[in-house]
Amino acid sequence: MLSKLRKLFQKDQSTGSNLHLPDEEEQRFTLYLKDLKVGELSCEEGIWTFSYSDEFKARSDEFYPIVGFPKLDKVYKSKSLWPFFLIRIPGLGQPRVREIIKAEHLDINNEAQLLRRFGRKTIANPYELTV
Rank of each mutant, 00 (worst) to 15 (best):
K79P: 04
V131Y: 02
S42K: 10
S53M: 02
Q10K: 02
R59Q: 15
K121G: 00
A103H: 05
P83N: 07
I66W: 03
F69R: 07
A112V: 08
R96N: 13
W48A: 04
G68F: 09
T15A: 08
Y52S: 04
G119T: 01
L92H: 02
F84G: 11
K34M: 05
S80N: 01
T122R: 01
L81M: 02
A112D: 02
E111C: 09
F63K: 07
S17C: 12
K34N: 13
Y76N: 09
L21P: 13
I101V: 14
L8P: 03
Y127T: 04
I101M: 02
K37A: 10
E104V: 02
Q94L: 15
N125H: 15
Y52P: 01
W82G: 04
H20M: 11
F56L: 03
E111W: 07
W48V: 04
R96V: 13
D12I: 02
V67G: 06
F56Y: 15
E40K: 08
F84A: 08
I66Y: 03
K71T: 12
K102P: 07
R88E: 07
F29L: 05
N109K: 13
T30D: 13
Y32K: 06
I101W: 05
Q27C: 11
E24W: 03
L5Q: 12
K7A: 13
